[in-house]
Design a protein around this nucleic acid. Structure first.
Lengths: 201, 201
DNA sequence: CCAAAACGTTAACAAAAGATAAGGAATTGG
DNA sequence: CCAATTCCTTATCTTTTGTTAACGTTTTGG
């Protein structure tokens, strides 16, 4: 993956939240890192403080917890999405979840230290605060939608929703990860699929 | 409720996120509203754009959806907490949930229009962006914790957690609201309680 | 290329949750 | 103050999910 091209992709993505002029971008750029994460390697680990957030240029990751010795997948990120163990990153406390590359994954990263430097930089501070606000609001809304689906819908309904909106997840993730993402066991998801198929035909 | 005292409480609460000096506060204050919400009256309604966020000075509210004609309670806010139908407020689209006062509730409010004015005000813009970022990050973390509990825990475990951390909710909310908040039916919560009692003794 | 691991389905049984209804206690609203 | 409503529990029955295990298929990694 060509870093120059990756930067272009990232800058384009950021316009969703904020537009940096060339002078600002020149400074911003200097605070970025690049990271190649081999398949199955971790971006964040339980018990460790997450020191960076990332932007997926190519590849994908899953978020998971370990409960009773078992991995429970919680979330996924794909190309052109941000990645971080947000709580740990923001609070500087050890995190509870792992983030793992599911294929060779190329990331642009910003360390906590560099983010603070940009937030304190006279020429960037205002836009960085705004950027942070808009990103946090964006993810807040995502969480709100997801919480609502857990409160008001059955696992089967959540799976049906996913069928219409979860192209990447459905096509690129193994089913047992999807099951935990929906809040159920892999066996249960397999049964739901059969139920749906038998109704459909 | 005395508005002057309420403003003092609100200013103190805000220091959790940001400290306004007297000049800034003088401007900020002018953008606030006060609202008395009688028991059972709504702060936000399904299908309407939520035009304000609030700060609960006294009282409490619940958030709920209507699904298949039934009310499903999703969340609560008590004294010294913010209230809004966030997604609707932020996106200016009709919201999906109701917010209802559970007792006579006194709120300090900020309209979307006033918030935008403050975000655009030269003397406030920077701190308001920062304030917005920190608030959104705070709630992001709350959502993250709650999602994690739905993915990794059983309803019984979530109720046990609530017993240690949910004083306000347990003492001030009827049990059938708490049940939906935990993602289960009231009948099921009643059974869980019995199960716990029979184990405890 | 092959052995090992991972994956999805199915079955059988147990545990839990949903739906419905009934009864009694507590609350409420004129 | 009293009738009506709301609330919680309990019981019964149905549906769904969890658990464990087995089996065949696919994928993986040396």
């Amino acid at each position: 993956m060509d870093p120059l091209n990756a930067l272009t992709v990232f800058r384009e993505y950021l316009t969703k939240f904020i537009v940096f002029d060339d002078a600002e971008w020149a400074i911003f750029k200097e605070h970025l890192g690049f990271r190649m994460l081999k398949k199955k390697k971790h971006f964040a680990e339980q018990g460790s403080v997450c020191n960076e957030f990332g932007f997926v240029v190519k590849g994908s990751v899953r978020y998971y917890y370990i409960k009773d010795g078992e991995e429970i997948t919680n979330y996924f990120s794909f190309e052109k999405e941000l990645v971080s163990s947000y709580k740990s990153f923001l609070t500087r406390q050890p995190g509870f979840n792992y983030i793992q590359a599911l294929e060779d994954t190329f990331l642009i990263t910003v360390s906590y230290h560099d983010l603070q430097a940009m937030l304190a930089h006279p020429l960037l501070a205002y836009k960085m605060e705004r950027f942070g606000r808009l990103v946090a609001e964006y993810y807040l809304i995502c969480y709100d939608d997801r919480m609502a689906s857990f409160i008001t819908k059955t696992p089967e309904e959540r799976y049906l929703d996913l069928l219409t909106t979860g192209r990447d997840i459905l096509q690129r993730m193994p089913q047992h990860y999807i099951a935990h993402f929906l809040g159920i066991t892999p066996v249960s998801l397999s049964r739901i699929r059969r139920r749906i198929l038998s109704v459909a035909k």
